[in-house]
């Protein structure tokens, strides 16, 4: 893997930006070059939020890209908007509780994951994005699970150990669902 370009998108509040942040934090901890660029401004208003993440062995030129290797679509509008920008042979992870199949499903590798349902089973719907992180790590190997765990521990071990546990459980469920 020289360079992985990932776009995460969803409704504001679904935590798409955080998926990207975790990947970027983990990549940085592993000594890789990373960029994280959110959509910003009034386009965020009530609508969708998305983030472009690049993880690479080389310094990252443009953090903006028109074609990505991986799309994580948390809702249907995001899938509709971005599916076609996924490279042929690339990967699309969808929240299958909220999304159907993309039009280009024959050209890409599709991983529909019931993010919401799995998160509900764990007892925290808000962890749906973490289930997505698990699937993403498992299918791409762009960063290590351990680096993500280290970062999350650093962020919440003291303040909210229960949430840390939930999040890691969600990540592992997401990973095992797609493996």
């Amino acid at each position: 893997m020289a360079t992985t370009r990932i776009l995460c998108a969803g409704f504001g509040g679904q935590g798409a930006l955080l998926i990207g942040k975790l990947v970027a934090e983990a990549g940085m901890a592993e000594g890789k070059f990373v960029t994280w660029l959110p959509s910003y401004g009034p386009e965020m208003r009530g609508g969708t939020a998305n983030v472009m993440v690049v993880v690479s062995d080389k310094p990252v030129g443009s953090p903006i890209f028109t074609k990505m290797d991986v799309l994580v679509a948390l809702n249907q509008p995001s899938l509709d908007k971005f599916a076609k920008d996924t490279k042929d042979g690339g990967l699309i992870i969808t929240n299958s509780d909220l999304c159907g199949d993309p039009e280009n499903k024959d050209k890409i590798k599709l991983a529909p994951v019931p993010l919401t349902k799995i998160a509900e089973e764990i007892g925290n719907v808000k962890a749906a994005n973490m289930v997505g992180v698990g699937a993403l790590l498992q299918l791409t190997g762009c960063v290590e699970r351990k680096s993500v765990e280290d970062y999350l521990s650093h962020m919440m071990k003291e303040k909210n150990p229960a949430l840390l546990e939930t999040n890691m459980a969600a990540i592992d469920k997401g990973a095992s669902y797609v493996s």
């Binding site: 942040k21 940085m28 070059f33 910003y40």
Partner: peptide, 10 residues
């Protein structure tokens, strides 16, 4: 510029 302002990097 807006991109450098908004993007995160190490």
């Amino acid at each position: 510029d807006g991109m450098l302002g908004q993007m995160m990097e190490p």
